[in-house]
Design a protein around this nucleic acid. Sequence first.
DNA 1: CCACTCCTGCGT
DNA 2: ACGCAGGAGTGG
Length: 278
Amino acid sequence: MPELPEVETVRATLAPLLEGRTVLSTWRSRLNLHRQPPRAALLERALARQPVLAVLRRGKLLSVRTPVGGVLCHLGMTGRLTVEPADAPVALHTHFRAALSDGHEWRLVDPRRFGMLHPFEGDPPADWSALGPDPTDPQAFTVEALRAALKRTRRAVKLALLDQAVVAGLGNIYVAEALHISRIHPLRPAHALRDREFAPLHGAIVDVIAQGIRNRGTSLSDYVDARGERGGNQFHLRVYGRAGEPCPVCESAVRVVTQGQRSTFFCATCQPRRPARA
DNA sequence: CCACTCCTGCGT
DNA sequence: ACGCAGGAGTGG
């Protein structure tokens, strides 16, 4: 479900509902979340009786900090983090609940359980720092950083851009959109992009992510922010999910191919397999 | 670098 | 009944 713009919207709506409140107690289900249930004792130590200092994001990862540590949270495909009145009905597939000092409850619902919740003490674990540059950080995400990372791999550019160590936060939707805007065919080997193509690709990634955030995320089926509100970016997609429909630029039918067992949408006219010679 | 795996739900 | 879905780790 959630890529960077959705996770950023969750962060922005979650932060004012958590920051300054104290977590009274925690609960978690015993079902696996990304292959393991969160460790209950560690969760209690990291959160219980602690004030929430900040809600941070890098790529698709969220970090909720307390004075003694905190939790890292990834929403996977279907994760939802919300804050609701403590007496609100508990949804099916609720895997985490934390009672807050203001009478609300912070909850994680995740039907498919591809998400994760990693409590930690002290500094955040390595997955937080193993991420590549975040496209909302102009200091870190530069044309040169993108060029260097893509030159290093022979994988198809679409698959390389899904690698969170190359760029943090892109997923299937926003990669398709960025490649369409920059007119790059998704099957082209990353290392074979022309030098002149990196600036347009970089710009398209920055723009498409900024647009997604402005529109409060893409709600195709079940994504909602921490207040339970849907986003609006699904009305601004150019190619994702639009197989057979006209390309918004040239009206050719949008095509779909499979890459890494997932669908890739693109326009074969706007995104030629061989770039025009300069 | 590939295919497979972890899950539920929804649409065909 | 089957295939597909916004993700990503793992193991060959």
